[in-house]
Design a protein around this nucleic acid. Sequence first.
DNA 1: TTGAAAGCGCTAACAA
DNA 2: TTGTTAGCGCTTTCAA
Lengths: 343, 343
Amino acid sequence: MNLDNNPPKRARRRSGAVTLQDVAQLAGVAPITVSRALNTPAQVSSDLLRKVQDAVQRTGYVPNRMAGGLASQRSRLIAAVVPSTVMSVFMETIEALNTALMDAGYQLMLGQSNYAPERETRLLEEVIARRPDGIFLIGLLPSGASRTRLLASGIPVVETWDLGTSPMDMLVGFSHADIGRAAADFLIGKGRTRLTMVMADDARAQRRFEAFAATVAQAGLPTVQVINVGSARDVHTGRQALTQLLAQAPDVDAVFCSSDLLALGVLTEARVRSVAVPERLAILGFGDVPLVADLVPALSTVRINGAEIGRLSAEMLIARAEGRNVDQPVVDVGFSIVERDST
Amino acid sequence: MNLDNNPPKRARRRSGAVTLQDVAQLAGVAPITVSRALNTPAQVSSDLLRKVQDAVQRTGYVPNRMAGGLASQRSRLIAAVVPSTVMSVFMETIEALNTALMDAGYQLMLGQSNYAPERETRLLEEVIARRPDGIFLIGLLPSGASRTRLLASGIPVVETWDLGTSPMDMLVGFSHADIGRAAADFLIGKGRTRLTMVMADDARAQRRFEAFAATVAQAGLPTVQVINVGSARDVHTGRQALTQLLAQAPDVDAVFCSSDLLALGVLTEARVRSVAVPERLAILGFGDVPLVADLVPALSTVRINGAEIGRLSAEMLIARAEGRNVDQPVVDVGFSIVERDST
DNA sequence: TTGAAAGCGCTAACAA
DNA sequence: TTGTTAGCGCTTTCAA
């Protein structure tokens, strides 16, 4: 019956890798049976299951998740968009997120915006293009093209490390204004009267500062002096900031820093200048990065349970990816002030 | 001519997102023209290009890279498998890698093995399943199932942060044995005679130690005492290690630590115990993590240009992903000993 | 429990 | 420069 009128087949370069087809052939079953054996083994008789597993072994088959994802509309990928990773306060969160995702069979795709909005926009577009089953964001996504586009994509989103009135979807965070107030109350409670701030140039630190300054003003104390260090967040910058601060406000007796590394710099510079900590100067950090607890003097700081943020976010995103409902889509994990030697 | 004998179409749930098809329809061109307009705009007349761009704008189209990757056999994804990210010496490398990849239009997929071999195996399998255009590894992949499978996949691989005789494919690293020797020579050159090590439990630190100990032995000095701190790499552990070390070798006058954080712990404990640094005890770290340069006393350490490792690796992987050749598939980026106040 | 057919959304190959 | 056709490797849908 071969009429030899096969249409001219277009040759296409195949990847060369073992496919599910190959496994099926070797096992003597249909491709779909291999698919079931791998994804929902309960649906396959133990006899065929064994045959398939054997064939997988012998061929060294590794599934192609691009093909699987395209067909099933599920990528088993969660994307995270974070401002930075180096020595950052977010690392515990990312690590916890990653661990929880892996344990559930999801992969993490990490994108770094470096606190640059235009980079974030591009990144978010690339992220959506991968069709992740969920997206994890540090911070709140301000309204704008990115937010609109993300909303339109229908992908579950969890915003973190902040608290807002209208999250896009889910949220795991805490209030920066509350922290600013608590920090001011804490230092005032210690009898400090000349409060200052050293802060990096980001929106969340700004909100902590505003609440901090307002609380100080309400207490009838002198206006809060603030050193804005721009985008730098390192120890060196913290040291410079204290120098600048002492010139600007020689009677300063307390500094609230927007990150532990800046606080560590202030602490170091204070030691160099023989400014007694905490006697003459109280120093309060932010983040409770692992190392600051074990230094001498140990740094007092605002502690955020970053790991819990990561874990909860993973849980929520996975639930939504699997079609389950999330009872509490907004969680405030709070914060605490850890008092050590520097205050 | 409608004979009405259409075969029964199987309804399939589409994703609902705007597709390239939709854009093509709106622009009044064929789908492939939209594809070209987006991927190789030089191949499309400016007239149609404008029409397509307009249609993309109006529809809010975001390409589906799973579909594109499947069709083109190019995922534009690079996977990195790293032991850890929190406070780790690899962060600069990962950040540089990520930045270089993004700039070239690639996405980074980050997997974390937590120094656990069985986790690494599973992770590597998931990584291959995504069909990345390249794989970045910290360390050398020992022979075994994972290595075989990775080799079989044909995906370009770069191993980093080490130097071996038979890399899988490409390599950007340095010799840990050389570092061990150089560290010993350096400390001996400072007149130290009772050299010790504080190290975490990993293969690369082990090799530094062996070369360090051998060099010390050759110099006719007392056997190197070593405190193995297991998997912990933090400041707290470093402090405990010095306590232990002083009990074990009261006459110790130099410590080489396997990470800067451990060294920082040793430094801190020395201050607490009024052990003069560097007069009575010289401390040498490893990694040159940003913060240690700005502490007082500033830590002497072995500096690795982690950012260069990331940058070079990205360059190589991208070249190979785009079918270009890599002239120098093995690069030794070396190291340097940065002398500061602690020695 | 198993399989056949169709198609996810895109791009390679070929043709005009 | 533009379009037609087929198919990347998998899973959904429907049927047995």
